[in-house]
Amino acid sequence: MTAHTLTSNHPARSLTAPPASVIAYARGLVKTYGTGETEVRALDGIDVDFARGELTAIMGPSGSGKSSLMHCMAGLDTVTAGTVIVDDMNVGRMSQRQLTALRRTRLGFIFQSFNLIPTLTAAENITLPLDIARRPVDRAHFAAIVAAVGLEDRLHHRPSELSGGQQQRVACARALVARPAVVFADEPTGNLDSKSAGDLLRFLRGSVDDLGQTVVMVTHDARAAAYAHRVLFLADGRLVQELTDPTQASVLDVMRSMGDETETEHEHDGARR
């Protein structure tokens, strides 16, 4: 154990309380896979804040740890060391049961593909988290969200009868319907054509601007990142750069500069995941 992880194990000492505008944050976050010689450090001591009511994009080359960061923040993966707080709850210390409850009440998810249960209709898919939690559906909120994603006339279709873009919009609606504290989106536009991707991103940004939703999105697409309020850049498990109010050009600039810096390290990096 290094001195670094020791301090991370006692976050109270190193913590500086974040401002109230932060809904989720990590301190000294470490995630390793494997042990001994095959040990891989996916996250190497990350301190990060996610602001309430903002769309934050996480970028980085493959193997930079961007997906690991999201999975740890969302309680989908265990944390090796450090603290993760989401909506005032210590995710790293939660039991599986508590994590399950957290996911269905306070978090929303959008994955790159296979977002929907094939046996359920679009409407049933959207209300699935509420049904699982046995909470009543707020009909007005449901209608507003469905209207926003433009799915009114597709509600009773099954996923197999929907286009890829429509499927992702159903997934967005599902992520938002329970009014979660944070929505985590993992490459939500990864499988979409540029038109559908644009629609989806506009909608995600709209949910932040109009509904005050907080969204954390992992992407490797500069165009997608340009919709965010803020872009975090990861490389080799560390936070290396940050952009506020990005444009596609500024994101590309950063990526290019990072590419230059990390070119030599990429070789062993690529073998990672």
């Binding site: 599986q96 996911r103 269905r104 994955f111 249960i117 699935l128 988290p129 699982i132 599902r174």
Partner: peptide, 16 residues
């Protein structure tokens, strides 16, 4: 498996 993973991710408990 993926479907199960998805349902678990959106909050389905083990007992459920």
């Amino acid at each position: 498996t993926r479907e199960i993973g998805l349902m678990r991710a959106v909050g389905l408990g083990r007992m459920q």
